[in-house]
């Protein structure tokens, strides 16, 4: 049986199938453990009532924004130069994470006190651009020019 499985033409499936079977057994074991625990505690097996995938009140703009920006960064990286992509996206990530542009005001909202916040915090924006330029150019110089490592 083992010999049949490990013949040259089949051997590449032996380990993946064995591992998948072990994973299946472990999933069943986890489900049984959960069923027993729920029975003991008198709670339903599936309970979506108090389940939150995201933390309550999570920062939607930063989470989804970082996901979209990262995907865009990778998509545009081979199309524009490493330095250009770095400057644009590191600046955008800084802007997104440091709130130096007031997104709430952009969408016509006011802060808790009812006052409109300044649209752009210029100092933070300048720092964002400086960081982006320094690191993009610095990494390019160090790795591409000095160490001759391929960069996008």
């Amino acid at each position: 049986m083992l010999k049949e499985w490990l013949k040259m033409k089949n051997m590449h499936f032996f380990f993946p199938i064995a591992t998948a079977i072990i994973c299946g057994i472990l999933i069943v074991a986890i489900l049984i453990q959960r069923a027993l625990k729920c029975k003991k505690e008198g709670t339903p097996f599936i309970n979506f009532k108090n389940y939150h995938f995201f933390k309550p009140g999570y920062d939607k703009v930063k989470l989804w924004g970082s996901l979209i920006l990262f995907a865009l960064y990778i998509f545009l990286l081979p199309k524009i130069h490493f330095i250009a992509a770095g400057i644009i996206f590191v600046t955008l990530f800084n802007v997104l994470f440091t709130n130096c542009i007031n997104f709430e005001k952009l969408f016509g909202q006011k802060d808790n006190a009812g006052y409109a916040m300044p649209m752009v915090n210029v100092k933070d924006l300048v720092i964002s651009i400086v960081i982006a330029v320094l690191f993009s150019v610095g990494l390019w110089l160090l790795f591409f020019k000095v160490f001759n490592i391929t960069l996008p």
């Binding site: 996206f89 590191v90 994470f97 440091t98 960081i131 690191f135």
Partner: peptide, 11 residues
């Protein structure tokens, strides 16, 4: 601050 560090880590 994480907000300044993560963009640099990312690149």
């Amino acid at each position: 601050k994480s907000a300044r560090m993560y963009p640099v880590i990312l690149i």
